[in-house]
Design a protein around this nucleic acid. Sequence first.
DNA 1: TCTGGGGTCCTAGGACCC
DNA 2: TCTGGGGTCCTAGGACCC
Length: 421
Amino acid sequence: MFALVDCNNFYASCERVFRPELARVPVLVLSNNDGCVIARSAEAKALGFEMGDPYHLVRAKIEANGVKVFSSNYTLYGDFSGRVLETLKRFAEEIENYSIDESFLKFSPGADLEHVGAEIRATVHQHTGIPVSVGLGPSKVLAKLANRIAKRRPECAGVFRMPAGEGRAEILRATPTQELWGIGKQLSARLAAAGVVNAQQLSELSERAARQVLTVVGARIVAELRGASCLEIEEVVPTKKSVVCSRSFGRAVETLAELREPMADYTSRLAEKLRREGLVCAHLRVSVETNPFKEDAPQYFAGRGCDLITPTAFTPELVETALALLETIYRPGFRFKRVGVMALEVMPANAVQLGFDAPEPAELDRRARLMTAVARLNGLLGRGAVRVAAAGSAESPWQMRRGLCSPHYTTRWSELRRVAA
DNA sequence: TCTGGGGTCCTAGGACCC
DNA sequence: TCTGGGGTCCTAGGACCC
């Protein structure tokens, strides 16, 4: 049995914890740059504010209704998120922190689940001041759905356990496919075209049909809807595969010089993020974008990436690369609204795939030996399997390079020699 | 006349999530 | 004038190899 514990209106609730005077006041939290609404208290929802409402379009309504508005404060939310997680740990042995405001708990078959939902709610509220809802079900998808119901039906008091049999079928019939976890706008439209509009119909789809319409992801959802758990708890936080820093600016810009500035800025933030998490990247990608909301203006969207000679999180190197990439995709005559930079092929800074002793300095041709050794290993293990790594000194703890068979290696022998040395 | 087939890797793009 | 930011996974298609 799984439980999904979800904090109610999380960011708005965090803002409220230390401000009791806001208890019944409608509260909104805005995105970076105060661009749009990203969290709403129950009172704000009742007033008709929607997720993603542009601030400048709802400002009048905010003032007219005495709504309290906050710029987002992710440090605060991260702190509360950690405290909620700590509190939840006492309730289950297996726990997955799914997002900043949600966690999955897994209970063993014999567990007494009669009152656990209410206990979780009371304890989290007592310890953190954050209200949560609890959904229970035999699979993650069903626990997610149960959570929605817990939130929606006042008589549930914030806890709902997915029934079996006809009770569940009745709920699934009343659930449009788009409300399911993993089914968005596009997929629900695709399903509707195939005559499937509610969750019960979806659960009755054959594995083959589900795969055809929704690919393997959809097939898993169908199994989960039938109560067969196939999405497991992921307790260990997997290391990131990419890290992004992208942002819109207040005012659109046109020249390359004006674009270079935010690009350099975001890239150094990206480098900081990587270092903070102990990561390096072997591929960097940048993108630029005009304002998609200005439909009458000429639109341009472009991105380009390149492999790095040495996986790195070193700011000057990344900035230099990002600016060079920017130059290749910049086009004059457009009004740019956003730039982004993304680190790909991210790996832990201390990763070493395979090491071997460097040949004796006295030996005639180190280069040939290295090449031969790596080529042989890659022949045995598959192209790119071997990466050259060298432990370094205290100032430069280590350096690492992607497989020698990458097209770069002959052109930057000096770099490799430095690493190998 | 008649022009293979199987596999991998990479990239771009689509879809989803919070 | 003013519309977020950060992720993941999957697929299709092209390049390339033998």
